[in-house]
Design a protein around this nucleic acid. Sequence first.
DNA 1: TTGTACGCGTTATCAG
DNA 2: CTGATAACGCGTACAA
Lengths: 338, 338
Amino acid sequence: MPDHLAPHRGAAAPTVQDVAAAAGVSPMTVSRVLNGGPNVRPQKIQAVLDAAAALGYRRNENARSIRPGQRTGLLGVIITNVANPYYAQVQLGVEEIVSSDGMRLLVGNSGEDVHRERALVNDFIGRKVDGLIVVPAGGDVAHLRAATAVGIPLALASRQVDGVDADVVLVDDEGGARDGTAHLLAEGHRRIAFLGNRSSVFTSRRRQQGFERAHAEAGVAFDPILLRAGQNDDATAHDVTLELLALDEPPTAIFSANNRNTVGALRALSERRDLAESLRIVAFDDFELSSLVPFALSVIEHDPRELGRTAARMVMARLHSTVDSVAQTIELPTHFRP
Amino acid sequence: MPDHLAPHRGAAAPTVQDVAAAAGVSPMTVSRVLNGGPNVRPQKIQAVLDAAAALGYRRNENARSIRPGQRTGLLGVIITNVANPYYAQVQLGVEEIVSSDGMRLLVGNSGEDVHRERALVNDFIGRKVDGLIVVPAGGDVAHLRAATAVGIPLALASRQVDGVDADVVLVDDEGGARDGTAHLLAEGHRRIAFLGNRSSVFTSRRRQQGFERAHAEAGVAFDPILLRAGQNDDATAHDVTLELLALDEPPTAIFSANNRNTVGALRALSERRDLAESLRIVAFDDFELSSLVPFALSVIEHDPRELGRTAARMVMARLHSTVDSVAQTIELPTHFRP
DNA sequence: TTGTACGCGTTATCAG
DNA sequence: CTGATAACGCGTACAA
């Protein structure tokens, strides 16, 4: 039995036993009351409730979860870069969907590092998450297979990887990039620079394909020197942009494949307004205040929050249904905003 | 014992028992090996390791954590608005510090709602988090007291609330706001609008105080009609700014107390360049690409990531030390960037 | 309507 | 060096 009614710092948390003792019933009755079980006399219900409140009882979720057939109510979310506002939106979308079911988010930041991703996945499996949403860093996927192998519903967001049985929600990377690039070509631009992440990154690869397809469809050859894929932070993108501006034949337009590259590019342009005055920019990923940027900027917008919502819905659907249907892939639309 | 070596979808996860059986030892030996316990014969170590690998064994962290004296390695983080890039940075700072200790983040979004905050705190207590970092929504604090009462180290970030025994890390809101406002006054502005959240929000109150103090120190009275505290999203801030611009005697400068208000204000200004051409702006909170904004904007910058790091360090310090020292408050500096 | 007994997976204790 | 035993807090058959 507890030393005090209001437990002081470091006091052992009250258990069902304590509540039972205080209410003068058995632990079983306490459990029944607290979990809405049937067939309990109103008097005892009240007694239990009073005792629980007085002791400040809170169910130990971890103890509960080790019983067979019990869920943890935990959803693992692994993101490549929490600092990127884009993924912050994804996280919000996920939370929005699952919190209404009382689920909680276990969030990890992989930093584009597969090793960290694997450590996180393994840890989350050990914590018995009910589901998993991952923006895969790519490369090895054994740990993702392991998650599905133990029956954890897995949804991949933003990026696809092969060899994993998981639902996937993507953005129409190639289509969006194609449209954006096509706009530039239609405006008459013939030297369009491409800024993107290394092409081993799923989205970058697809966006680059869209960029190239638009050129092919227009019958325009692009200068390989203008193709810069390898920047995953804005500092590097900034430097690369300055290089491009300094070329003998600089680009007349820039296609930026993601918001990190866009930020870096815009910083560079604002430093060299002399060279950048007439430069046209099309950027994948909208960002806050993009409309205020003092350059000829168009964006390919899409909805990161909806991406998160969709991934969450996919996981929840598998959680709520007993039959395991075949994995599905959803591709969210993009929209070119001039 | 498991049906297959590689567990298939839905198969029960292997336990120490399974590993022990496969390795021909007792569960205790398995536990010892896996936790680096002493006094185990090398042969058996190898046997256990092999069996564990073959079965894909992963320790059940929840079962482990119900043993007395064991920690969960979980840190609860409750933020008022995950979508705000500012708090995304805070979250990253926290993760940065604690992940090196192998701790994981349980993240909740309160949405400035004390009820949701309480639900999250109670849930986190039930999940036996080792520590808690909260950006308090304000109002009731009983649930926060409850957390400290059961011995969970608590750090408040960004905002202070009374009646809770917790470490606090703040930004020098008043000083920063005073400096920024003083700059405007020194430039000769006499009609400065204030945009902020409702004054029940800790930071807004303090920033407003700084705003007023600067006026008092300069011996300048401000027009109450220019004081607009109540916007916590950019849409409202946008509308309020339009109202201000439409006044008979519009402000010549705007002091924006947080990034949501700044975004809304800038949107409004860009719609009414005719009225906003010469308007001067000082904004609390730096934001990405702020230097590109085509207005006379200065920012009061500070470091949200460091805020997160500091809060995390405070919690970790209490976690690692046995003596419980008195709660401390740290105030991080701001920097006016013209 | 209520209580008893047991097991979930793990580890600490203690005996061998 | 190793293993049997017990206990953490909870929920569920089953019995009363």
